[in-house]
Simulated assay, not measured.
Amino acid sequence: MHAQHTGIDDATLSHARETVARYLVATPLLAYGGAGLPVPVHLKYEGAQPTGSFKVRGAVAALSAYAAEGIPVVTASAGNHALGIAHAAGLLGVRATVVVPRNGSPAKIRALREYPVDLVVEGDDYDGAEHHALALAESGMRYVSAYNDPHVIAGQSTLVAEVADSLGEDFTVVVPTGAGGLVGGTALGARRAARDIRVIGVESDACHAVSAAVTAGGVVRVPVGDTIADGLVGNLEPGSITPGIVRACGVRLVSVEEAAIRHAVREFALGTGLIAEGSSAAALAALRTGLVPTDRPVVLIVSGRNIAPELLAEILTEE
C-alpha cells in the first residue's frame, strides 16, 4: 500500500518530518524494566513536548505547510490540539484563532491565554465551538482539524519515525486511539520505516468511533460514555480520512475498560515516575490486560501528561 492511497503522499510525510525535526526536539524513548515481560518494553514519552502532548507535532507540520498561503488559521479545541496550534503559531509566526467551548477546562484555557493567539470562547460544548470555528473558516480562514487534516496526520507520523531511528530492531507499537490522527499517522510512518513495525490501536470502551467506522466502511455515530481518557472520546467528522488509513494499513484495534486505564495512570506515576493523562495510559492498559502480543519488543506511546492535578491525586490514592 502506498501512502498516496490514503490521500497523504510521501512528499507530505517528508515535509512533516523535516519541519518537526527543525522545530521540536525528539522526545525520550525510555526502557521500562519494571514491565516484567520476556521482551523489552519502551515508553515513548510525549509528555516531554513543550505543550505536554504529541498534538504539537501535527500542529507544527500543518501550520508550516499552510503558512505559504498567508491566511490565518482557525481551530476548535478545548485541549491538547489547541495548545499545539497555539505553540506552533508562535514558532512559525502564523496568525491563529482558537475557539474553545464555555465548558472547556479552565486550566487549559488559562494556558492558552499565555500564547499569541486570538482566543474565542464560544459554544456550550465542543460541537458548538467547532460550529463557530467552521463559520470563521468560511469567512476567509483555514480550518485545521485536530485529526482530519493530511498535514496534521503527517506530523503525527514523525513520532514512530523517531522510534524507528532509535531502535535497531523490529517492534510492536501500541497507540492510544480516539479520532485516529495519531494511529493513522503512526501506521503511515511505520510503512516508511526500515523496520517491520506492527501497529496496535487502543480505544477506550467509552467510545469506539474509529473501529465502528472501519467496520462500517465509513463514519457512523457512536455512543460516547464517561471516561478519564477525554482525548479518546467523541464522534468523527463526516468524511474523516483516518478510518480509511487505519483499514488500508491493517492496524489491529483493541479496547480497554476504565479500571484498566486508571490502573495504568497509577502505574506510570508510581512505577516509572512519569505523569500520564488518561488517554496516554491506554497503551499500558492494553499491555497489562493481555491485548498486546509479546513476541517482539513493545513500544508504548505515552501521548501526553496534561491531567488535572485533583484527578491524578484521586487515582494515586485509590486502593
Results as ranks from 00 to 15, higher is better:
residue 189 G to R: 01
residue 245 I to P: 01
residue 81 H to G: 08
residue 248 A to R: 03
residue 222 V to H: 06
residue 185 G to T: 10
residue 108 K to C: 01
residue 182 L to D: 11
residue 31 A to P: 14
residue 300 L to D: 01
residue 147 Y to H: 13
residue 162 E to W: 02
residue 278 G to S: 05
residue 147 Y to M: 05
residue 112 L to F: 11
residue 271 G to R: 00
residue 101 P to D: 12
residue 96 A to L: 12
residue 188 L to N: 11
residue 221 R to C: 04
residue 121 V to S: 13
residue 163 V to R: 00
residue 139 S to P: 04
residue 197 I to T: 07
residue 295 D to K: 05
residue 13 L to W: 00
residue 131 H to Y: 14
residue 10 D to I: 10
residue 243 P to S: 09
residue 89 A to N: 03
residue 158 T to Q: 09
residue 183 V to E: 04
residue 68 A to V: 14
residue 88 A to C: 12
residue 184 G to I: 11
residue 225 G to Q: 12
residue 118 D to I: 00
residue 259 A to P: 05
residue 41 V to Q: 01
residue 39 V to L: 04
residue 15 H to T: 10
residue 269 A to C: 05
residue 288 R to N: 15
residue 215 T to N: 11
residue 308 A to V: 09
residue 244 G to A: 09
residue 194 A to L: 13
residue 263 H to L: 03
residue 287 L to W: 13
residue 223 P to S: 12
residue 71 I to R: 15
residue 259 A to W: 10
residue 137 A to P: 01
residue 96 A to E: 06
residue 260 A to W: 14
residue 213 A to Q: 11
residue 62 A to Q: 04
residue 12 T to L: 07
residue 305 R to L: 02
residue 127 D to T: 11
residue 186 T to I: 15
residue 169 E to C: 15
residue 211 S to Y: 07
residue 35 A to L: 15
residue 202 V to D: 06
residue 25 V to Q: 09
residue 223 P to Y: 15
residue 299 V to I: 06
residue 99 V to G: 13
residue 315 I to K: 04
residue 269 A to D: 00
residue 148 N to D: 15
residue 31 A to D: 08
residue 248 A to M: 11
residue 51 T to C: 03
residue 107 A to Y: 05
residue 224 V to M: 13
residue 97 T to H: 03
residue 257 E to P: 13
residue 39 V to Q: 09
residue 50 P to I: 07
residue 220 V to I: 13
residue 199 V to Y: 05
residue 127 D to L: 07
residue 132 H to Q: 07
residue 243 P to L: 11
residue 294 T to L: 00
residue 29 L to S: 08
residue 156 Q to C: 02
residue 160 V to D: 00
residue 175 V to I: 15
residue 254 V to F: 09
residue 193 A to Y: 13
residue 112 L to R: 07
residue 155 G to Q: 10
residue 224 V to Y: 14
residue 162 E to Y: 03
residue 162 E to M: 01
residue 108 K to Y: 05
residue 104 G to N: 00
residue 25 V to W: 03
residue 300 L to G: 02
residue 319 E to V: 09
residue 136 L to Y: 08
residue 195 R to V: 13
residue 222 V to W: 10
residue 268 F to V: 05
residue 274 L to G: 01
residue 106 P to K: 00
residue 242 T to R: 07
residue 165 D to W: 10
residue 284 L to N: 01
residue 182 L to P: 02
residue 115 Y to A: 04
residue 136 L to P: 03
residue 3 A to D: 01
residue 73 V to Q: 13
residue 309 P to W: 02
residue 248 A to K: 05
residue 287 L to S: 10
residue 126 Y to T: 11
residue 117 V to G: 02
residue 122 E to N: 08
residue 170 D to S: 06
residue 56 V to Y: 02
residue 239 G to A: 14
residue 220 V to Q: 10
residue 18 E to Q: 13
residue 178 G to K: 02
